[in-house]
């Protein structure tokens, strides 16, 4: 029921002229159920079939026929789009309202509202667009019968002509650069392991109390090295050898040797980095 689609209609691309005759010969027992574009379309068809005026719809009769159509759809196991059910509810509501005697007060007023008014307005509006759609269809029909000269093959549309010897040289250069990058990556893979990086960092922190981690990250020359560095820093934080501090949000990250971490040293360190920033 909540199926996304226009209607229970599954024939999206069938040309109109193949569908129209079916619609014209629609009789209660040989219904082709896939011809309506929605509840408004179905209602217009029923109104035309019954030869009644759109301004004075016999609501009981039309509602009965409308529901009958939905029942046939159900019998054929077609999913009924929710819009059809909403319209069914609307029709039944209008029908029940028309059965009730009009309130005395409303009868006095010149404009006692017809419960069908809103539906008639929607039908009339929809009918206009349906006619406009048919006009577009006939225009498209005419346009399909006209031809223009095919596209000329110019330099713009032909990339084989468009490429010069310089383009070729540039492509070669790019390929060489890619090759170089790949070689660097292989060397890096052989040289650095996570254990080695951790050892390297431990050595660094034996010498220094304060290391700018952001700078360390920036110095990494490959994705892999960056990743290993990141994991190594996490590891050192985990074993509580270092502590990470940040001077400001999104600012540079500093690592402090954990044994030296006391409130005063931290404050000094922060002050110093702020001075760095000021430069």
């Amino acid at each position: 029921m909540g199926r996304e689609g226009e209607s229970p209609d599954r024939c999206e691309e069938i040309p109109l002229h193949e569908r129209e005759p079916e619609r014209a010969s629609l009789s209660p027992y040989t219904v082709k159920l896939d011809v309506f574009e929605g509840p408004l379309d179905l209602l217009l068809h029923l109104i035309k079939q019954e030869q009644v005026s759109i301004y004075d719809i016999p609501i009981a009769r039309i509602t009965e026929q409308y529901l009958d159509y939905l029942r046939r759809m159900e019998a054929l196991d077609l999913t009924i789009a929710s819009e059809y059910l909403v319209m069914a509810a609307t029709l039944i509501y209008i029908k029940s309202k028309m059965l009730l005697p009009a309130p005395a007060r409303a009868a006095d007023e010149a404009e006692a509202e017809d419960p069908r008014q809103e539906l008639v307005r929607r039908l009339l509006e929809y009918q206009k667009y349906k006619a406009a759609a048919e006009l577009l269809w006939s225009r498209a029909e005419r346009e399909q019968a006209t031809f223009t000269r095919g596209r000329l093959e110019t330099d713009e549309t032909n990339p084989e002509v468009n490429a010069t010897v310089f383009d070729l040289f540039r492509a070669f250069q790019r390929a060489m650069e890619r090759l170089k990058e790949r070689q660097e990556l292989v060397i890096a893979r052989e040289q650095i392991t996570l254990a080695e990086k951790i050892a390297e960092l431990r050595a660094l922190f034996r010498e220094r109390e304060r290391v700018d981690i952001t700078a360390l990250f920036e110095a990494a020359c490959s994705r892999r090295e960056l990743l290993i560095l990141f994991l190594a820093v996490l590891e050192l934080v985990r074993v509580a050898l270092i502590r990470l501090v940040q001077t400001e949000r999104f600012g540079r990250i500093l690592a402090l040797r954990a044994s030296d971490v006391d409130p005063e040293a931290e404050a000094t360190a922060l002050r110093m980095t702020r001075d760095d920033h000021a430069d």
Partner: peptide, 19 residues
Amino acid sequence: RPSARLSMAALETLAVIAY
């Protein structure tokens, strides 16, 4: 042969948008 045309659903929608 004439290529696949727009469905009536698409044409109706196009008409509404055009106007």
